[in-house]
Write a protein that binds this DNA or RNA. Structure first.
Lengths: 262, 262
DNA sequence: CGTAGGATTGAATAACGTCAACTGGAGTGG
DNA sequence: CCACTCCAGTTGACGTTATTCAATCCTACG
């Protein structure tokens, strides 16, 4: 149930890909384990994160890319004193992509203990120029970041139905954990109720109420931060645009209201 | 008041930067006008857009980058039959950045007649490997796209106060038009009321009502799609996180509620 | 064992969305 | 040249519902 944070206790600075569980979806997949380790040892750093640690603050220059290896990180901004979560990062995710060549637009802080690999953008860009696979890797992940943000945005635009938003959030989490090799049905929420609210554009109490409402209906079990999805099929019925099949579903719907020649 | 679409009537295919009014913020700024024109003639295409023309559809493979030269384009998805605008592109903007190396997550259609320059991603990436300035240009613009999306997202997360959202939308438009050399106080809305609603996560009627409410208060004048900002200072007071000064304002607010060591 | 902060529940308010009718201008065709 | 049509925009009344304010519970940790 609980993601075993296998890479939690490790040496503090030298970055190596050898024992990294994410290797097959990261740099080693692009240029091979041997070269990745060499390269990372030269230009990369590893850092241990504890809850609350700040990776960077909004407004700061974006020196480097962070790849989350273990744990969870939130991206957030403050608007008039209230926090908004603009992103939730899980192992394998890239953090700070919006600041390749501009100051950070948001801050990032660790939600729990974890590990990040850090690579200066300059070095990465240089390497990307030399090696097409590195460039592909780079653009591939940036592409993903943009897509994920877009999905989040679309969710926020829908009708403010808290149930739908929560379900979408949970299904997304489930899918991501599953992709990481964890259970898709039982997991621990990396966010507090208030943070979930800040992520979905809802009040904390609304999150609470609808979470218990979903439980009462038998869709899932909730106990504090522990979630057990009981009827994934039912949940999927209420989910908005399916993030897992980006193309098909949307195309079919597109023709309903089409902006024809004026 | 009305953006003079200077580059509207042009030959249909060969792309050249020579007479492009956006040259100094585009490829020519990176590698010089001469080389930019050469390069674009080789790998680029130009296309005339008419209202409703679709640049690409969600799910389609993302072959190439589009740089909007004149006109306005909307990025949108369909969720259960209702349209959501995920982006609004104005001259100078890059369209399709989320699909460098993945299928398009959203569709894009012209809102009015305009012109786009189109460059295949593959060619652009190859060139980016050879020429650092091109790479910088590429990453710079992608960075901007991510930042802009992030700002949009944060806006949608705030309290669902239609007034605030509308003001933020209008100020953003104003700033962008200003940056393009048009009037910052008088412009034509590229979106219908319904589309503004789809962009801000509000109902069409709500947009209407609050637009006239703002006018009644003397903040601005509205006549159909024509907008005249009368009291920009007052409007700015109600705006959420200021997009124009990404750093300062947010940093000051950040310390209010900080996630300290647990 | 005690406390602090997160989570939960309750009640009342305010406001956005919905349904529906109406207006006005632009474009079309007689 | 005028009447007609169509659709974007507007306004009104209503119901629903998420937020807000507040109090309480509970869980984790010291």
């Amino acid at each position: 149930m609980e993601p075993r944070s296998r890479a939690a206790r490790m040496s503090a600075t030298a970055a190596s890909c050898v024992h990294c569980p994410l290797a097959d979806d990261c740099l080693p997949a692009a240029i091979g384990l041997r070269r990745a380790t060499q390269l990372l040892a030269r230009i990369g750093r590893r850092r241990l994160l504890r809850r609350g640690d700040v990776l960077f603050r909004a407004g700061a220059p974006g020196h480097d890319l962070h790849v989350l290896r273990a744990g969870a990180v939130k991206g957030f901004v403050f608007d008039d004193g209230v926090e908004h979560l603009t992103a939730l990062y899980l192992p394998g995710d890239w953090i700070g992509t919006s600041a390749i060549r501009s100051p950070h637009a948001k801050s990032a802080a660790a939600l729990e203990t974890g590990v990040v690999c850090t690579i200066p953008w300059g070095r990465l860009e240089r390497q990307a120029r030399r090696e097409p696979p590195v460039q592909r890797w780079l653009h591939d992940r940036i592409s993903r970041a943009l897509t994920r943000t877009g999905a989040h945005l679309a969710l926020l635009q829908g009708p403010r139905d808290p149930e739908v938003r929560l379900i979408a959030f949970l299904l997304d989490l489930s899918a991501r954990y599953h992709a990481l090799g964890y259970s898709a049905t039982e997991f621990r929420l990396p966010l507090s109720r208030a943070e979930i609210g800040a992520y979905l554009g809802l009040a904390e109490e609304t999150v609470c109420r609808n979470l218990t409402a979903l439980a009462r209906r038998g869709w899932l079990d909730v106990a504090g931060r522990l979630v057990r999805m009981r009827d994934t099929a039912a949940l999927r019925t209420f989910a908005p645009l399916d993030t897992r099949s980006p193309g098909a579903a949307m195309d079919a719907r597109e023709d309903v209201r089409r902006n024809r020649r004026a």
